[in-house]
Design a protein around this nucleic acid. Structure first.
Length: 270
DNA sequence: CCGACAACCTGACGGC
DNA sequence: TGCCGTCAGGTTGTCG
């Protein structure tokens, strides 16, 4: 499930459980996710106190007082459960705090990852090295997109999914933002008029912000054992809505690009 | 540079 | 009821 808003919602749900708390116990059921967890993960985390939590792109960050940051990615199917009532299949990592709270990282498909890296050098963690700007941060601007898109024949959808261009967008929110901005997903990035890039930046920010708000509004529910996120799906304009009406009154169509579904409206997206 | 495709995994769902 | 094909929010690599 997780694109940027879901990871942000997850981090916000973990924060009250972990921040300032000591990790008393680490149970590693299986370390072979998409990339293997560090062999000494349990040793390095046990007894550490969590000093803060954050997010970069689709990665969650858990800082400790030992100088390590735990970096987790939820892949396609990852989720944290808070104070789970019972174990589930695919609970790969369990944490217990000194306050008696517990967390379970569950990921059936194992496309996620967990790593540890020195907090002071977090920007040099290899997957972070080439990431583009945060879409909700100050460096994500129309000028940035203009530079990234200039002369490029690749589709704008492919460019927005490229984490080097902007970090944190996935298939759902790219479809949503392009619909909101009225841009056809298959249009060559270099052929999007400069004056349309400001509205595109605004659309991306708006769709992410409302998705985070939707997650945030159900944060109370997050701390349930089922780990439900309060997903944004009810508010999707086009994603998963093939054959239904676009907000403009046109018809939502589905096409496949690079093996992934694209939902769009040919009436309002040009 | 670019698009297509496969690989990594499991689960949900629809059709028959 | 069960079996089978299809599809799924991500990332990374290869091929032509």
């Amino acid at each position: 499930m997780p694109e940027l808003p879901e990871v942000e919602t997850t981090v916000r749900g973990l924060r009250p459980v972990l921040e300032g708390e000591r990790i008393d116990r680490v149970i590693l059921n299986r370390a072979d996710l998409r990339r293997a967890m560090p062999a000494d993960l349990g040793q390095r985390l046990t007894g550490a106190t969590v000093t803060g939590l954050g997010r970069r792109a689709k990665y969650g960050l858990i800082d400790t007082n030992r100088g390590d940051t735990m970096i987790f990615h939820l892949g396609m199917s990852g989720r944290w459960r808070v104070d789970p009532l019972e174990p589930l299949a695919h609970d790969h990592l369990l944490l217990e705090t000194g306050a008696g709270r517990s967390l379970a990282l569950n990921d059936p498909r194992r496309f996620g990852s967990v790593d540890l890296w020195p907090t002071e050098a977090i920007a040099e963690w290899p997957p972070f090295a080439a990431l583009g700007p945060e879409p909700l941060g100050p460096d994500f601007t129309a000028d940035h997109l203009a530079r990234a898109f200039r002369g490029r024949a690749a589709s704008i959808k492919a460019m927005l999914l490229d984490q080097r261009v902007v970090a944190g967008l996935g298939n759902i929110y790219v479809c949503e933002a392009l619909n909101m901005a009225g841009i056809a997903p298959q249009r060559a990035a270099g052929r999007v008029a400069a004056k349309r890039l400001g509205p595109l930046v605004d659309a991306i920010r708006a769709v992410l912000a409302s998705a985070i708000e939707a997650g945030g509004s159900s944060l109370r529910d997050y701390a349930r054992p089922d780990g439900e996120l309060g997903y944004f799906s009810k508010q999707w304009r086009v994603y998963g809505r093939e054959g239904e009406a676009c907000p403009c009154g046109g018809l939502v169509e589905r096409r496949v690009d690079g093996g992934r579904s694209t939902f769009w409206c040919r009436r309002c997206q040009r």
